[in-house]
Amino acid sequence: MNSIEEIQQDIIDEFELIAEDREATIFYIMELGQKLPSMSDDSKTEDNMIKGCQSKVWLTASYEDGKVNFLADSNTDITKGLISLLIRVLSGQTPDTILNADLNFVEKIGMSQIIGSQRSNGFNSMIKQMKMYALGFKTKEQVKQ
């Protein structure tokens, strides 16, 4: 498992290649979305939906061997591509790593210019929800101990 910093640097490098081409950037995000496996319809519940997104986004998480694994889906490919970036960085990490993660790739690739203010708000809601899951697992672990 690469560190959060290494994965973020990979993403920054990938976006750097197409930074001047807005259309290519959007197509790239969309392709990432199309590649992300779909969630089963059973998991696409109201409870798993992230509040604050214009499009529909579902997120679930599981906890195994001290690592958090995320699953997500959306009804739009671009949104799915966006959350796939977050999954790539945060899935498989420990709760503490997730809670302390400084997701500097978001600013470095110029995410808010790419997706605009409305979708940026939704993107921030996704990050918040992922950190909430990490906090939940951490708290449960502490109670067990």
């Binding site: 807005r22 259309e23 959007i26 197509f27 969309m30 214009q54 499009s55 009804n75 739009t76 490919d77 671009i78 949104t79 997706i115 605009g116 979708r119």
Partner: peptide, 11 residues
Amino acid sequence: HPFDVGMMLDA
């Protein structure tokens, strides 16, 4: 999704 179409047209 219409949002995605709109974003690609904007590009």
